[in-house]
């Protein structure tokens, strides 16, 4: 565990907390993509199956349980409790266009052809693109509430911090995982446009509004 890794995990946790607070306090999930949340739940469930096979540390198991349970809670809030506020018409990204290529890619490019390993690889690939329905929703409505922008910023920062962690681990421990590094870079690049808007607009007190 190094500082970048810890900061990345905390940023990830913060993103999830911001999201739940936003939904709970405003009693609304307007502006949020339920499809991205379904993809994230799928990511955590397929990645953390090793919860039952391998014990790494209390920290590791605790975070895995938190990520799985909070993502399921978010889906429950969006699709059941606050369903009336869910922006279904704007959330029209076709997630099968992301899931199917990730399934194929994980079957072809993986480090070991076993069930757990292929599912882990699938989750890494899927995570890198899971935010696309949310970014698509923002671009479709042309704006995002500040709290949604903070959520996206924390979520995007998490993988960017992981990249620093991977660089550190490569030099300090000789440890590297090419699949995760490649997908993590793709994931971070997808946020770049948003990061730019966040720094130039939201941090200056303006609403995140896309140019017409």
């Amino acid at each position: 565990m190094n500082l970048f890794r810890l900061a990345g995990d905390l940023s990830h946790l913060l993103a999830i907390i911001i999201l739940l607070i936003k939904i709970w306090k405003t009693r609304s999930c307007a502006g949020l993509s339920g499809k991205s949340q379904i993809l994230f739940a799928l990511v955590y469930i397929t990645r953390y199956l090793d919860l039952v096979t391998t014990y790494i540390s209390l920290y590791n198991s605790f975070m895995k349980v938190i990520f799985i349970s909070t993502s399921l809670a978010t889906i429950y809030l969006m699709y059941s409790k606050f369903r009336a506020t869910y922006d279904k018409n704007h959330d029209s990204f076709r997630i099968e266009f992301l899931i199917i290529p990730c399934v194929i890619l994980s079957l072809v490019i993986n480090s070991n052809f076993t069930v757990l390993e292929v599912l882990w690889t699938f989750s890494i690939y899927l995570e890198s693109v899971a935010i696309l329905p949310q970014l698509f929703l923002v671009s479709k409505t042309g704006e995002a509430e500040s709290i949604t922008s903070h959520y996206l910023f924390a979520l995007g920062s998490y993988r960017a911090l992981y990249i620093l962690n991977w660089i550190y681990r490569y030099y300090a421990e000789g440890h590297y995982e090419l699949i995760a590094i490649f997908a993590g870079c793709v994931q971070t690049i997808l946020y770049c446009d948003f990061f730019y808007l966040y720094v130039t607009k939201v941090l200056k007190g303006k609403k995140l509004q896309l140019p017409a």
């Binding site: 890794r5 990830h12 790494i56 540390s57 990520f67 070991n112």
Partner: peptide
Amino acid sequence: ELKLVQKDEL
């Protein structure tokens, strides 16, 4: 035989 690196990251 390939030895898998333990996945300690999240």
